[in-house]
């Protein structure tokens, strides 16, 4: 199991220290934590320390947070409103996200954009598949990770969760960047059925040979080691 650091605003200095002490093997950067210039400098610093760099494009973040995120060049005039994001723009947007990560940040793997859902509806599924297909077409030289950002209602609904995993297995990507919004936004989850559903879904991804990176993980996520995460 590899540990990637995922720091908040003003905490980037800690990354270098923990990488030097070999406590972590890399970082997952995100647009919310700094300006593009700061992030590019930090990426270079991490690479010089021998750490891996990943970048979460945060397409799933609610609109209220968008001011800093929109400074990043891959948005380039696109509306951040995920609800009205045009299906046909998905491939074009995806390409810009990849170019930024690969050409500017020189990441070790590319995290594709992915909207957050707590419903798992057909429109969301079409976006997910479009991002994965566009990513595979545009990026053949770096590992690709599809973002799966889902809420507790999806995880708890067996049919929804099954069909989501069934489809995700067929995306032409090497792995997944998984973001789970816990029930009641609780830090530690006591709902056994929810935890079982997470383990069940991630086990299938691992058995299919897909890499899984769990975003914003806490100590409870260590139990996912049981299914090979």
């Amino acid at each position: 199991m590899k540990l990637f650091l995922q720091q908040g605003w003003g905490m980037l200095a800690l990354d270098a220290e923990l990488l030097e002490r070999r406590i972590a093997s890399g970082v997952v950067l995100s647009p919310r934590i700094s300006t593009p210039e700061q992030l590019e400098r930090h990426s270079s610093e991490i690479r010089n320390l021998g750490g891996s760099v990943l970048f979460d494009p945060q397409f799933y973040v609610p609109r209220t947070e968008h001011a800093r995120i929109l400074q990043f060049p891959y948005w380039d005039g696109l509306s951040f409103d995920s609800d009205t994001f045009d299906d046909h723009s998905a491939a074009d947007f995806c390409q810009r996200v990849i170019d930024y990560q690969r050409d500017v940040l020189d990441v070790d793997g590319v995290i594709l954009p992915g909207a957050y859902t707590n419903a798992g509806d057909e429109r969301w599924r079409i976006w997910q598949a479009s991002f994965a297909e566009a990513g595979a077409e545009h990026c053949t030289d770096k590992p690709l990770y599809s973002t799966i950002a889902i809420g507790p209602d999806v995880v708890r609904n067996r049919h929804l969760m099954d069909s989501l995993i069934d489809e995700a297995l067929n995306y032409p990507v090497g792995g997944f960047y998984v973001l789970l919004r816990p029930p009641n936004d609780s830090f530690l989850v006591a709902d056994e059925d929810y935890l079982y559903a997470v383990l069940d879904g991630l086990l299938s991804l691992r058995e299919a040979g897909k890499e899984v990176i769990l975003g914003y993980a806490n100590q409870q996520a260590l139990l996912l080691a049981a299914v090979g995460v």
């Binding site: 099954d162 069909s163 995993i165 069934d166 879904g201 299938s204 058995e207 040979g209």
Partner: peptide, 13 residues
């Protein structure tokens, strides 16, 4: 298995 993800991941497996 009803759900594909619970079946064998490949014919080889």
């Amino acid at each position: 298995e009803k759900s594909p993800h619970r079946r064998f991941p490949s014919p080889t497996a």
